[in-house]
């Protein structure tokens, strides 16, 4: 298991393109992946609807938790996405 607490740097928070990239990356993990905003309840990070419902804005703190194989690797990727200011591409 791997856990990290980070501040979301994406301009639009975990919405729009950053949310989609985040959920897609989480979906590739073999084990369970959760994300929680602040001190709130963790939700399934593979669910776009659950992630959107958290309404994570730029500057919010989130806790990402990854279970199972390659947990560290998956977590690194998720942290990178959440800490990227601007999403790649158009």
């Amino acid at each position: 298991m791997a856990v990290r607490r980070i501040t979301v740097a994406a301009e639009v928070g975990l919405h729009a393109r950053p949310a989609a990239l985040f959920v897609r990356a989480a979906g590739k993990a073999p084990g369970e992946v959760t994300v929680a905003k602040g001190v709130g309840e963790p939700v399934n990070a593979k669910s776009i609807l659950a992630v959107l419902s958290l309404d994570v804005r730029n500057g919010d703190e989130i806790t990402v938790r990854v279970e199972g194989d390659q947990a560290g690797q998956v977590l690194d990727e998720l942290v990178r996405l959440a800490e990227t200011r601007e999403s790649a591409g158009g």
Binding site: R17, A19, A20, V23, R24, N44, K46, S47, I48, L49
Partner: peptide, 12 residues
């Protein structure tokens, strides 16, 4: 792209 993810949402 986001809508496609909604249709495939595991929670849903």
């Amino acid at each position: 792209a986001a809508q496609a993810l909604m249709a495939r949402d595991p929670g849903l």
